[in-house]
């Protein structure tokens, strides 16, 4: 037991690697603050386009969304990071993460928003339009607020996934939490920094997971 703690939770190593790990944590938070709004924005655009029920819009959009749902985010990231330089376009890890997430999580958010918009009864738009609101105004003031409330658990759940996904940045040398922890591990020849990173992820995301599990239980019960 003593030996296990010395190996996996070594206090001296925690102290030594703390600054490196904390720098990683800050970058993870920063990265999340950039990619979550980016994904939400992309999703919103997709969903609003999808509400135009024209086949020429609908089918390509569905193909776009399915394409990125089928594509592992890491593959997308590597494609941008390692593939694009061959076309003379070297964006750097950070920009690649941002673009890949915009495309990938945007599709997921888009599906969620779309389901939300479809869950609002058609009478709501008609009521709004009948008072003279434009299509966009009806969408902004009447549909979206109700849609978001209806799919809030899904939005939060996807956001949790996005934050977890920022750990992929480590593969393209973005110095986020996992990357920094691995750096510290190879410097100290000890796995403690990775364990610490895992604990940080857990403490940071646990409240959200708890909240979600409450909301999801209620959502499924409501469908009965």
């Amino acid at each position: 037991m003593e030996a296990m703690i010395q190996t996996f939770f070594n206090v001296e190593i925690i102290a030594a690697s703390w600054p490196i790990v904390v720098a990683g944590l800050l970058n993870t938070v920063l990265l999340s603050l950039i990619v979550v709004p980016l994904g939400l924005f992309g999703g919103l655009i997709l969903a609003m386009l999808a509400s135009i029920r024209h086949p020429l819009v609908r089918w390509p959009l569905m193909a776009w969304v399915d394409f990125f749902r089928a594509f592992p985010p890491l593959v997308l990231l590597i494609l941008l990071f390692a593939g694009l330089p061959f076309a003379g376009l070297d964006l750097g890890g950070f920009a690649c993460v941002a673009i890949a997430f915009f495309l990938n999580t945007g599709s997921y958010y888009g599906e969620i928003f779309r389901a939300g918009i479809e869950s609002v009864p058609a009478g709501q738009v008609e009521a709004g339009r009948s008072t003279g609101l434009s299509r966009l105004q009806a969408m902004t003031y009447i549909i979206l607020p109700q849609a978001v409330r209806n799919v809030l658990p899904d939005l939060l759940s996807n956001t949790l996934e996005v934050v977890k996904l920022t750990s992929l940045g480590s593969v393209v040398a973005v110095p986020e939490l996992l990357y920094q922890a691995r750096q510290a591990q190879s410097l100290t020849y000890n796995p403690t920094p990775i364990v610490v990173a895992a604990i940080i992820y857990f403490l940071m995301l646990w409240p959200l997971v708890r909240l979600l599990s409450r909301l999801e239980n209620r959502a499924l019960a409501g469908r009965r």
């Binding site: 977890k164 996904l165 996992l178």
Partner: peptide, 9 residues
């Protein structure tokens, strides 16, 4: 625990 931790971690 396994919902909070990123799979890569």
């Amino acid at each position: 625990l396994f919902r909070s931790l990123p799979p890569l971690v």
